[in-house]
Amino acid sequence: MARTPARAEPHGALDELPGELLMWVLIISELLVFGAGLAAFLGVRLTDPSGFAEAQDHLHRTGAALNTLVLVTSGFLAARALGLRQVGRRALARWHLGAAMLLGVVFLWIKGAEYADKAAQGIGIETHPFFMFYYLLTGFHAAHVIAGIVVLGLVAIWDDAHNIEVGAAFWHMVDLVWVLLFPVIYLLA
């Protein structure tokens, strides 16, 4: 939501929020859900810090770091798409949305390779509590990435500026969750 279309002067705090109010309700709800999950993860870690550290060594930090770059770049393209649509550059906005979706697919491909590698090592959801949280949180996030790709596709078809603003906001929410999830699951040893 780099810019918002011209609208009436704000009268209350809620009117100041850019974009759709319901999308902000969703963003806050998702932050609460993932926030609780990450706090629970670190809470359970207190019972077995060395086991969690050992389990974390099986993760691919480089792949996850690459995925962070992919997702923030995808968010950048979605934000640019809105700005382009607002100045009437409709075709270029659609190309940006398409590129953002493609990077979403790249994110899922890297995530899929990571899951396949874990499966090949015989690591599953019941291997250790660390992996239960790992699969639950990253899997739930990946489901949001899939939903986000669909949403971006829909707003690329029905591409008025308001639709793109709402769709891009959903995508930025996915981005926001990842920048909190990635360091806690992959980096805090």
Binding site: R3, A13, E16, G75, A168, H172, L176, F182, P183
Partner: peptide, 26 residues
């Protein structure tokens, strides 16, 4: 360091990607 950087990233996404620079109190 890691959590400080995460907080900073979240701030940037909220401000510039999600447009909260237009709503300073939020």
């Amino acid at each position: 360091g890691i959590l400080l950087f995460s907080w900073m990233k979240a701030r940037v996404i909220l401000s510039r990607y999600l447009g909260l620079w237009q709503a300073p109190s939020w």
